[in-house]
Amino acid sequence: MAHRWGMVVDLDRCTGCEACVTACHAENNIPTVGAAEAARGRAMHWIRVERYWEGEFPEARLTFRPVLCQQCDNAPCEAVCPTYASHQTDEGLNAQVYNRCIGTRYCANACMYNVRFFNFFHPQWEKPLQLQLNPDVSLRESGVMEKCTFCVQRIRAAKLEARAEARELVDGALQPACAQACPAGALVFGDLNDPESRVARLSESPRGTRLLEEYGAEPKITYLQRQGWHEPDIQ
């Protein structure tokens, strides 16, 4: 049975530490654009930790919500791409074929999560920062859209390794960079088609919701809502 990669984000565990954000930059060769370009809205963060304030002082509260590509089953970005640069793989990933992208940016508009990022210029790594680049991940050129891939390079490597060793993939052994870094264990990645996997079991949690589910994009990321504290009965 084909894999169907998915993720669970436990908002009760997320502390907004943003280890995932830098881990993603490091793993996926995401350029930093510098202060001037960042000020013009060109910063790229395939995963971001959204934060929202509620209430006013002193009852103000803040909530964190990591948002990355939701790898939708019914992805709006895919239909609108005129060149099939954005398409669904048979393992349920929303693939972005950089070489096929002509830069209409329509996919980014169609995506209600705004998790697609565009190379407005050629990415620069001031020497010798290019030495940090991950050789397993292709660099993107100016005019190309990019986004979270669920670290497809890791998925491929793990599958190759498993095949070489003639075994099945082990749940939890294969993780995208964000989930691997996440200290609080808020990000759980795995195969939704494997009913025994942690991600499959957690996505059935009663706390589970989908982001902007009403749009019908059928995202493969389940958000486990924060749980309130209720005073337990004291025996």
Partner: peptide, 9 residues
């Protein structure tokens, strides 16, 4: 630079 461009949480 990665930390400079990190959005403060």
């Amino acid at each position: 630079p990665w930390l400079q461009e990190l959005p403060d949480p």
